[in-house]
Write a protein that binds this DNA or RNA. Structure first.
Length: 551
RNA sequence: GGCCCGUUGGAGAAGAGGCUUAACUCAUAUCCCUUUCAAGGAUACAUUCAUGGGUUCGAAUCCCGUACGGGUCACCA
């Protein structure tokens, strides 16, 4: 008779380490009371998803706020789906969002004492756990092929019974160890399943940091914990890793709620204290009147790279995500008169339970606030690096004359209520293109939108007078007064009240007069403060544009 | 289909038996300010909290059913 212990030894003769050895190798972290150890643990199967960024941001802030640790673990046990290079990209994006880690996996090597932080490199560690579970009779080799499993599932479907590998359907659960050894010796492929002692008809409760106490049926399915490729499944890796990496709080998507009982049973089979769990709502999207998960295939905004490419400021995206996480965050921003994350106390119990609909309008709002809150140097820096990466046309304009561009960016920003017309860096160029002579020339060619109520000669005369005689400084009032004076000479009313009282006595009001100037200067009827535009463009360019507007 | 989670305006939500004629924010609309635009200021926008019943003097708030939405049932995470 082969004992469980002997079976374990037979299965994993190369494994010499024990659980106790691992406990010594990865001792509990020395952290102050209340400090949380959190982690971000993505799979390198594609680009960073907006929902993952959300989850990650919360893990990051929980650790930061509590004075704990936040680390990064690469969950690459699914070798078939792993995409080369994805991990590096993921990490780069995390860092550009200011959510970079100090401990964990890096492309050029791990940092930290609890590694390796890449699951595919932890096979030895997992085997220690698997061997232990086999040795105490809580795990066993299973010889079912995918066809066998399919047959079982079909039979279950026909008899309308819950599908899964459990109870009488767990075919190899009660094999004798002797038979197991024999079949393995014969070369039959096998996996290891966890032997669940739970009862499907019983309920268990566990506490969720967001949802409170959840009551769920126990899990009685014998899940696969060790795959035929020698790597563990998520369930097992989660338990081993978060135990030995000493994670105190696991934040993950709500899709994990149903498998939490399995994880808890695994923890208890080892006799370990499970971490706290926070199951986060998933970000949704409205599609033909139905909510659905943000999908990377259908929704561009599902990939974090979308925001980067569009030029949304990363702070704006984070602000928006935080407002979804804790809606009192907005009130906090308003109270503090600043839109920043630092200093806000995130809390799980302020979190709503169902998934928020992704709202681009609100993202734009927060992005405008984020941009308005930057000082000009960092704003300029952000725009410049955005241009470099994503917008060669913008980059060319910037390089033409960085100082000029910086002044343009700064229009009407140095004031209590700064201008907020950019939600993303991609919005900038179309709005400021007129500052550049080539773009202006293009507009001119297409025809400047002068008010047809005025004839050409009149406009020309007026503009010439303005060009030659207006004050080009030293302050806005002086300039404006001079403009008014000239306008008055040409029959415009300088006081709107007078114009309204007797419109036929005038050519128009100052709105009409300045519209002519604006069109000549910018090629468009709308623009920021004309005085600032003139100051930035400089006298020569302004003079030229006013004079040649009608040529 | 079983199980789990959820359901307050176009969106994010506050609300935890009487203080709610349902806060706040975004969006939208109108007005004000104004040399245009942006910004800013003001006002409007749920007679009602998915729905049906119940408990109660009193319910968005408690209980039950129904509907709807989402999630999950892999050698994927």
């Amino acid at each position: 008779m082969v004992s469980d212990k002997e079976l374990a030894e037979f299965l994993f003769p190369e494994v010499k380490e024990t659980i106790e050895d691992l406990e010594r190798r990865f001792p509990p972290r020395k952290l102050p009371e209340g400090a949380e150890v959190t982690r971000f643990a993505p799979s390198p199967t594609g680009f960073l998803h907006t929902g993952s960024l959300f989850t990650d941001m919360i893990a990051y802030y929980v650790a930061k706020q509590s004075g704990g640790v936040y680390f990064f673990r690469l969950e690459d046990t699914d070798t078939k789906r792993t995409i080369p290079g994805a991990a590096g990209e993921l990490i780069d994006q995390l860092f550009t969002f200011g959510l970079g880690h100090k401990e964990g996996y890096f492309v050029d090597g791990d940092k930290g004492d609890y590694g390796p932080y890449q699951q595919s490199k932890r096979a030895d560690i997992y085997k220690v756990g698997i061997k232990y579970l086999v040795s105490i009779g809580r795990a066993y080799p299973d010889f079912c092929s995918s066809e066998d499993l399919e047959k079982i599932r079909k039979a279950q479907e026909e008899s309308k019974v819950i599908p899964g590998y459990y109870g009488i359907y767990a075919r190899d659960r009660n094999l004798s160890n002797d038979e197991r050894v024999e079949r393995i010796k014969k070369g039959e492929p096998w996996v290891i399943r966890f032997k669940s002692l739970s009862d499907h008809d019983r309920k268990m409760t566990f506490h969720d940091e967001i949802r409170g106490d959840l009551e769920i049926q126990e899990n009685d399915i014998d899940v696969v914990i060790y795959k035929s490729d020698g790597l563990p499944t998520y369930h097992f890796a989660h338990v081993m890793d978060d135990h030995f990496m000493r994670t105190t709080l696991v934040s993950r998507g709500e899709e994990w709620i149903p498998s939490t009982p399995t994880h808890l049973e695994l923890f208890s089979a080892f006799g370990w204290q499970p971490p706290k769990y926070a199951h986060l709502p998933v970000i949704m999207k409205l599609d033909h009147g139905n909510k659905r998960k943000l999908s990377k295939r259908k929704d561009p905004e599902a990939a974090v790279s979308y925001f980067l490419r569009q030029g949304y400021p990363v702070e704006g995206v984070k602000l928006y995500l935080m407002s979804i996480a804790n809606s009192n965050f907005e009130e906090w921003c308003i109270e503090n008169k600043k839109y920043i994350l630092d200093g806000f106390k995130f809390s799980f119990d302020k979190m709503s339970l169902d998934g928020a609909l992704f709202d681009l309008d609100k993202l734009a709002y927060f992005s405008k606030e984020a941009i308005a809150g930057m000082d000009i140097e960092s704003f300029y820096g952000q725009v410049a690096s955005y241009a470099k990466l994503y917008d060669p046309e913008l980059e060319a304009k910037i390089e033409l004359d960085p100082a000029y561009f910086k002044k343009i960016l700064n229009i009407e920003r140095d004031r209590p209520n700064p201008r907020k017309d950019y939600a993303k860096y991609g919005d900038i160029l179309p709005l400021v293109a007129f500052f550049y002579d080539d773009e202006y020339a293009r507009k001119k060619e297409a025809g400047l939108p002068f008010d047809p109520a005025f004839d050409r000669d009149f406009i020309k005369e007026f503009l010439n007078d303005i060009a030659d005689n207006m004050a080009y400084g030293p302050d806005e009032a002086t300039w404006w007064n001079s403009v008014k004076e000239i306008a008055s000479r040409h029959g415009f009313a300088t006081v709107n009240r007078e114009y309204k009282a007797n419109p036929s006595a005038f050519k128009g009001n100052m709105a009409a007069a300045s519209s002519l100037m604006r069109v000549a200067l910018t090629g468009s009827k709308d623009s920021p403060s004309m005085y600032e535009i003139i100051s930035i463009m400089g006298k020569d360019r302004v003079h030229l544009r006013l004079q040649k507007a009608l040529d």
